[in-house]
Design a protein around this nucleic acid. Structure first.
Lengths: 239, 239
DNA sequence: TCGCTTCCGTGCGTTAACGTACACAGCATG
DNA sequence: CATGCTGTGTACGTTAACGCACGGAAGCGA
């Protein structure tokens, strides 16, 4: 690989026309994000937006009592901090690094300026937000109607789509936090998947062995979300 | 009342500066919406956006099997059809009239043109969308963590906030569809609320008798959403 | 008045997920 | 090697919601 680290590993940045990208590029600052790190706290103003390149960030809704639910997941296809350009400045949800890796961040004001030029960036970010909305809606309906088994499959596949490898570093405890269920429930569901040979895991490392097998088990929610992302963000991996 | 029907009963339209409003006003077409009518079908392109004035519209996510869940509710504070200006044209969800009344509709292209002027309308619509996102996120977490009793309270209050009266025309069957639960479950929960004198209902008419009582029972989700709407859409009722 | 439909009440067995408790294994540290 | 922590397995009673079935009451039209 010629360029080990390139902001354009993020699909939104990669989709920008050259001139727009070059206006932003000097201000993009590479950051290493570690597992569990929080990028956005509920209700806190944020200084930056983040363009993930090879990490995954979960958007969590946290209740007073402490229990939480993941409402969406963001990888290289997206951006963390949409409320900056949507106009609210803050959100009542958290953004937590679910898989360590790097991202490029940009000062909020710079993003806003570019956004307000009615630029290609604006077009991209709005479409991305629309895709994100679909993911959130589907998460809501999935929470309601589908079994933990299916939700775990959905979660694994959504994560896998955002990773270069087939291995995720993630304890069952953390997965339970994401899905908003008990740790024991995850143990049981993951145990089933392991038993039939779809995954294997060991102390916080999950390897997906049979992706088609997962896809056969997952509920329709995964497909709906994926289809909508593909439709809205027709991203072509750079040659 | 001098003007029985005025587009500015919709808060977004009312918040526009005069010149912008007057550009749109000639193209606003008043429509009467009836209970159960569908404004947007999953995946279908829409010609218009709708600005409710005294009706309520539910955004539903419908599964293949037919079961559904409401992911957000829109009244005079909002607009139906955000995907038109967000850029996707379609959404995988439905928009169904939950309480009959009137709305003003506008051809999609006209809205888009105005939106793309980087106008006050754009600013308002984006902030509104941000509020809507919060509602969806909170719905997802509520689906996960809270009892049907609490969810029913939340639903009643969200609906009530969008109605001029304290009476809603809505069968338990329909409420169950919205919440994505069994009809019998709603019967039971509503029965409890009736027993303690918070509501009374009879064949598809629900009267809220004790609003503070509902607020005392509801989960935090209602408050989070309401607060965020107030923050993002600081609307002043016209004198 | 009869018949039909809509809407609501209720009961009962089933199930998925919950809360709790505890046991054990891997791994690091002293 | 003893200790302790983290991650996982398992078991058991509890509960909220489910699916199904039926009954009854209110309202509407013929």
């Amino acid at each position: 690989m010629a360029l080990q680290h390139d902001p354009r590993q993020n699909h939104l940045l990669a989709s920008l026309p050259r001139d727009e990208y070059e206006r932003l590029a000097p201000h993009l600052e590479r950051v290493e994000l570690t597992l569990g790190e929080s990028l956005v706290e509920s209700g806190m103003e944020m200084r930056h937006v983040y363009f993930p390149t090879d990490c995954i960030v979960s958007l969590l809704c946290v209740m007073e009592a402490g229990d939480s639910t993941e409402i969406a997941v963001v990888g290289a296809e997206g951006i963390v901090g949409i409320s900056l350009f949507m106009g609210g400045e803050t959100t009542p949800s958290r953004a937590v690094v679910q898989s360590a890796g790097s991202a490029y961040r940009l000062k909020g004001q710079l993003l806003k300026d570019e956004f307000d030029r009615a630029s290609a960036l604006q077009f991209l970010l709005l479409r991305y937000t629309q895709a994100l909305i679909t993911q959130m809606a589907q998460t809501a309906v999935c929470n309601r109607h589908h079994s933990l088994d299916q939700q775990l499959c959905r979660w694994l596949l959504l994560s896998l789509d955002r990773l270069p490898t087939n291995e995720l570093v993630m304890t069952q405890e953390l997965i339970a936090n994401m899905l908003g269920v008990r740790r024991e429930g995850v143990t049981e569901s993951a145990g089933k998947l392991q038993k039939v040979g779809l995954i294997s895991y060991h102390r916080g490392r999950i390897r997906v062995l049979d992706r088609p097998g997962l896809e056969a088990r997952v509920c329709e929610c995964y497909g709906v979300v994926k289809k909508e992302y593909d439709r809205l963000l027709s991203y072509q991996r750079p040659g």
